[in-house]
Amino acid sequence: MKLHDLPPGELSRRLNGPGLGLVTGPFVFRINSASGAIASSLATLYPDFPVVGPETFVDFHVAVRSSGGLRRFVRKQVHFEFDSGLRPFKPLPWSQAFAMLEWGMNWCIYSHAHTFMIIHGAVLERDGAAIILPAPSGSGKSTLCAALMTRGWRLLSDELVLIDPEDGHLQPLARPVSLKNRSIEVMRAFAPESFISQPIHDTTKGSVAHMKPSAESVRRIGERVSPSWVVFPRYVANATTRLASVRKSDVFMSLVENAFNYSLLRERGFMAMSQLVERVSGFSAEYGDLDEVIAAIEQRIGVEG
């Protein structure tokens, strides 16, 4: 059963009661929250994701709750709570509940799912060619990721690259793409047909909005791919598009820098990273215009635009 198949009111009932079992790729979350913003954001951004009942094994039990006491009435706040009652983040204003849920779900994955090597970055695929965009903040990674998705690339993930150390394949999550500040307007203009949620303002990352993953990305969420390219985007206002090869040693170091659990996985991490870097070619992509850089990347990789 998909989330949009739930009868009216059922989504809220589950979120307020037994929890909503939501499947995103290899992980099952059970989400509790009384926030109306979370119910409506899930309904609009995750409609095609499978939902499960109490009979399914749940990987992460999470809740987004309001603070107790007087805080319920004055400048209401929201907490992200993990199963044991652990609260890994400081509370945020109530209006930021959905952003908190998304960050919390990412936290669950990168701090527990160590059967994967996890790198901070985006993954997309077209005609069997998968690219990894590692993610120093402000590089324009999410913008380029969202733009590629609206031009027919399949989204595997916007934030978390999940690599199976056994065979080097990448595991899709296909969760919504998080857009920040100016890139929200940029993407509205670039892809008016795509759904972008109402921005949440004044978060620690500025304004945040989420773009719904493409139907194809969600439909093919079970299809893992082997990576073939690592692209280092760099947005520079008004720059002409310039692609340049990146040496394997630099690709290696940059992926290590962006990895969540490279050292935690020890020799296993080193072996997985070495095999990944052996397999891929890296290039940087300085750009000022999205259409131009997408055309250049597709030409370089040799896929049909």
Binding site: P26, F57, A113, H114, T115, L264, L265, R266, R268
Partner: peptide, 18 residues
Amino acid sequence: TPTAPRRHLCAILEVQLR
């Protein structure tokens, strides 16, 4: 052990070994 819980057990062993 079924796959889903086994993944959590294998993951914590990685943390422990580290």
